[in-house]
Design a protein around this nucleic acid. Structure first.
Lengths: 183, 183
DNA sequence: TAATATCAGTTGCATGTTGCAAGTGATGAT
DNA sequence: ATCATCACTTGCAACATGCAACTGATATTA
């Protein structure tokens, strides 16, 4: 079972420190705003990249996430998978064919993050230098409903075919200025 | 001018450490994925909350952000405002009527994050215990285009009327289980 | 004009988080 | 039996965060 830590530092802490992000549900210092609460649940970089990889790359396992090219540390990856499982955004199940492996999957709650990921994708491709093909992203931006429906269909049917490839790292430098980009 | 630090720790660092999120544009370890790059630009919790406050609460000043009820530290707030300015997501201009104040504003690039924030809001209200009125969020979810158009209109016309109130902290506990929520 | 308050930060330091690299235990392949 | 693989755990160094006090500039008040 993932995340079965023998002990955790800070576990015996008293009251949560004022101002520190309330990672635990019972922390008393928490805004009631849905955006704030969402960010507490999954808002860190690595969690969102795990969700991305599950959603659009068809990844399922710890090793696939680790080899995504983003440079995540194994202890952080393990910790995020545990947190996302606890939050009910993903599930973990042992691979029947290979007991070493754990297969992760988005839950209903998790797949509902598809619109968030799609908007991040569209924004990033429009405003930053990326390795994403312009035509591909433009098409996704024009057909949001269709893309989201397809994301959901692949999730429902456990179809691991990637919706997006792994974008090369090396292509980012040297791309021309984006149209309309300011600042 | 905001963020004009006398000195910054880490500024004389050599090569960026492998695996550390590439906060600087020239870092060599960066995925080409738009989602990953977006998260590097503004993906941390406090940055997103600043953008939220500019976008839907009509906040403009350092003090307003600080008093948002989220518990942000002043050094972190100052740092995030500087980074968001550098990234071209917000601008800072001195208040003509009061030279002590700096008024922050979303840029074109920044207001384009409205769909991301709206999806976070909708997801959070649907899947977590929040203090947001259900009818209000349901209405926003049903009329995404209209809400986004209104967000843009208020931005364009520098209309600081809040689109959303500050949700109380105290209401989060004790709300009934959300419909359809699992985990 | 002097005293006080406000604004936007800065600072030093303690604490928490992140990430490296080595390592572990269970399992599968040879 | 040996080796490789998978999903982690571990100890520790480096970095990030946040507290509380503080600063300089500016506005308000007496």
């Amino acid at each position: 079972m993932p995340g079965k830590a023998k002990s955790r530092r800070g576990e015996v802490r008293g009251e949560a420190r004022a101002g520190r992000p309330a990672a635990k549900a019972q922390s008393p210092r928490r805004s009631g705003c849905p955006v704030s609460i969402s960010l507490e649940t999954f808002g860190d970089r690595w969690s969102l990249l795990i969700i991305r990889d599950l959603m659009v790359r068809g990844f399922r396992t710890f090793k696939e996430f680790h080899d995504s090219g983003e440079g995540v540390a194994t202890n952080i990856l393990a910790e995020r998978l545990r947190k996302l499982t606890t939050a009910g955004i993903i599930t973990a199940e042992c691979d029947q064919a290979d007991a070493r492996r754990i297969n992760y999957r988005l839950t209903e709650k998790g797949i509902d993050l598809a619109p968030v990921l799609l908007e991040l994708l569209v924004w990033g491709a429009r405003h930053e230098h990326t390795a994403a093909p312009c035509a591909l992203i433009a098409n996704m931006a024009e057909n949001r409903e269709r893309v989201l429906a397809e994301v959901r269909r692949r999730w429902r049917e456990r179809d691991a075919t990637p919706l997006l490839p792994k974008f090369s790292d090396a292509e980012v430098e040297g791309k021309s200025e984006k149209r309309g980009r300011k600042g």
